[in-house]
Design a protein around this nucleic acid. Structure first.
Lengths: 94, 94
DNA sequence: TAATTTGGTTTATAATATAAACTACTTTAC
DNA sequence: GTAAAGTAGTTTATATTATAAACCAAATTA
């Protein structure tokens, strides 16, 4: 009846991160932070989880002299997001 | 940008419970248990939370000599579910 | 009458989310 | 040049949540 929802995506912040990244080529940590209004600490942890799962590629470099973290959704991430959305539809389409 | 998702509904089991109840007049504990494949303990706790929030009316009676718990979604619950679905759309419609 | 089943609730534990504290710098103000 | 404030994060401690295990009370079956 109800398909399981990927627990990694069934989290407001992680879902928002994925939702942002699915429609852009890549995004900076600070951009995601602004859009999601998450604290840096929370965002750092959640990005790390998505990255560990292979849903995101995270690139750490420098913009001038300041650290710059850039995120990009992976193929696996896109697939997981799409699967999640499809599963979710069972719950919300009466 | 991203509207907050009602944390009470943003839980796989509680969402499944609400999803079931929104399309029926009422449902028995055991019916919900079968459909959601939840353990009785977990289901008991989650129904209680939804009930405490005023999203569900829970009626305890007896069918013959066995206890019978029946659940019904409230107006408040329907509103909360609809709001949740609308908020969620921001996350899943690219 | 002893085991098993039904229909739950309570409670203990594992998992998760979050904020607070911290690190490592850079920029600005004095 | 050095103190204060800002930027861009990470780490860690704590609060919240989800879940399963243990339990209870009664009924049914062997």
């Amino acid at each position: 009846m109800f398909k399981d929802l990927d627990p990694l995506l069934h989290s407001q912040l992680r879902l928002a991160i994925m939702s942002l990244l699915i429609s852009v080529e890549s995004a900076e940590f600070t951009f995601i932070k602004e859009k999601t209004r998450a604290t840096a600490g929370n965002l750092s942890v959640q990005i790390d989880k998505l990255s560990t799962a292979g849903y995101l590629d995270v690139n750490k470099s420098f913009k001038g002299k300041m650290p710059l973290t850039t995120c990009r959704i992976t193929k696996k991430g896109i697939k997981a997001f799409e699967d999640y959305v499809n599963s979710l539809k069972q719950y919300i389409n009466k």
